[in-house]
């Protein structure tokens, strides 16, 4: 039984059809990399799975929670799957610890001591327990992104969506974030990530999805996709690198 089920999903912005019927099933514990040209719809797909965009056709479900309009359905969906953004999006007025505590207390009504306990555990997991009281503008980009990961993990999601989470980082900070992701993968977290880090995709992912013009153009194990691309589009994409 797959954790994330994406069936015939179509998404239009005005006349621009960005997703033209996407089918993708993600198993529990699977790590999937999505690659593709700029504008091919990678971010849009992830945002749809998190309910940040509405879809025009098809269906998405995560562990039984359907993507439907309405606050209650969206909440149920988002409790099952977290999202990490390219631009971190930490809350600037809250310390790192508070960032991790907030949604537990607001959404799950977790009492403060337990939320704080969880926050410490999660910050420890990303190696930032000592930054519990630091504010986002006192952290490096890599540290901010790790806090964002801890924040999502504290909600105990079944899976994480990661949209180019290292693209905004200076090169020397990329690895500390990827190390955290690798660790998560090895612990069995389900990950659906858009990435330009081909080495990382090859080493860590179970499957690679190549998106092209709003479709899943090619999909397979990393070795097959990278070493033996079937379509000219993927060949060209890989050759471009």
């Amino acid at each position: 039984m797959s954790l994330i089920t994406i069936t015939e999903v179509k998404k239009r912005f005005g006349d621009n059809e960005v997703l033209k019927g996407i089918n993708l099933d993600v198993d529990k514990g699977e790590v999937i990399a999505i690659i593709g040209k700029s504008g091919s719809g990678k971010s849009t797909l992830l945002r749809c799975v998190n309910g940040l965009e509405t879809i025009n056709d098809g269906s998405i479900s995560v562990a039984g929670a359907q993507l439907l309009p309405g606050e209650a359905a969206l909440k149920a969906l988002r409790l099952k799957i977290g999202m990490i953004f390219q631009s971190f999006n930490l809350f600037p007025h809250l310390s790192a610890g508070r960032n991790v505590m907030l949604s537990q207390m607001v959404v799950k009504k977790t009492p403060k001591p337990q939320a704080e306990e969880m926050a410490r555990r999660m910050l420890d997991r990303v190696g930032l327990l000592h930054k519990f009281d630091a504010y986002p503008d006192e952290l490096s980009g890599g540290q901010q992104q790790r806090v964002a990961i801890a924040r999502a993990l504290a909600m105990e999601p079944l899976g994480l969506l990661c949209d180019e989470i290292t693209s905004a980082l200076d090169p020397e900070l990329v690895n500390e974030v990827l190390a955290v992701v690798k660790e998560l993968a090895s612990e069995g977290m389900t990950l659906l990530m858009v990435t330009h880090e081909m080495r990382f995709a090859r080493d860590v992912c179970d499957r690679v999805v190549f998106m092209h013009e709003g479709r899943v153009h090619e999909i397979g194990a990393p070795d097959t996709v990278f070493s033996n691309p079937q379509t000219p589009e993927l060949k060209q994409f890989l050759g471009m690198l």
Binding site: K75, M83, F85, N89, F91, L102, V106, M155
Partner: peptide, 23 residues
């Protein structure tokens, strides 16, 4: 407010009002 702040709140399962109030 940057759009990312609203989206981060939403992705953490907060309602639009909760995001407004807390974030």
């Amino acid at each position: 407010t940057p759009r990312g702040q609203f989206e981060a709140g939403a992705s953490l399962a907060m309602t639009p009002f909760e995001t407004f109030y807390h974030v």
